[in-house]
Amino acid sequence: MTARFDGKVALVTGGGSGIGRATALAFAREGAIVMVAGREPSDLRDTVALIEKEGGVADAVPADVTHGMDVIRLIKTTVERHGRIDVAFNNAGITGEPTPLAEICEAVWGDVLSTNLTGVWLLMKHEIAAMKENGGGVIINTAANIGIHGRVPGFGAFAASKAALSTLTRTAAREYIREGIRINAISPGSVDTDQSLRPGETTEERDARVKAETPIGRVAKTEEIADTVLWLASEESSFVVGHDLVLDGGATA
């Protein structure tokens, strides 16, 4: 049986941990050549090692998506080494420390927006150009359910950046679908990663909080998010365009 991504090249940002690492592993298991990118070279090396241990093919480029030249180098290096980009999962993001809106400093606001919104715009800008040269491709952006409901105090910058990213995804999807580039987003809720922990909160305390707050009663596994990304990247979702798929166990229902 042919794997869904045999011979395809998949780029994953934020690939050094969490959802990014789980998704990179999932793409590799399905036959893709995976390029992982992120700020921490050691984390990227660990992801590549995990993929190679399973017999997959992976590569890594350290990159900060808030720096335009880093993004250009990332896309150029991926194309030079592997010929093209078939799928891009733009997953790098930060939450920022929980702070009431009127107390957020400009530097923190700028960091969150630069990473979660401007960084994804920069990635799409150069991914789209590369994909057009190759006749098309698929892009999936990581937004968040807080961008839809905005009900978590202290995360105004994060919520604003993710709401804007969801809208940017829809705009880009309409602009480029006729050129063979299919663009969607995912909006996870609480996932079993460090980002889901509030300051000073233990994993057990988080699990109890999420059980009380969320209809499904638990956090998502990173593998569950990865499975959804692969579905959106595959031909199985070929008619899905400009959609923001919410993965939050009913929290926004």
Rank of each mutant, 00 (worst) to 15 (best):
F5Q: 05
D194N: 11
L117W: 07
D86M: 09
F5P: 03
I19G: 03
A3G: 11
T202S: 11
P98L: 13
E40Q: 11
V210L: 04
V210W: 01
I19K: 02
T171C: 11
I216Q: 08
D207P: 00
G55F: 11
V219G: 00
R209F: 11
V240R: 03
T2W: 08
V246F: 07
S196P: 02
E201C: 09
V79D: 05
R29K: 06
I85M: 08
L230I: 05
G96R: 01
V246C: 07
N116Y: 03
A3M: 12
R45T: 09
G55T: 10
Y176S: 02
A143W: 02
A60F: 07
E106M: 08
V87C: 13
R174Y: 14
H243A: 09
D46S: 10
T214P: 08
M124Q: 10
V108K: 10
R4P: 04
P62K: 03
L117G: 10
E54M: 09
T118P: 01
V65L: 00
F155N: 07
N141P: 03
M131N: 10
T167C: 14
L25A: 04
E201D: 12
E40D: 12
F158K: 00
A143H: 04
L101W: 13
L230R: 01
T202Y: 08
M1G: 14
G147N: 13
S196H: 00
R39T: 10
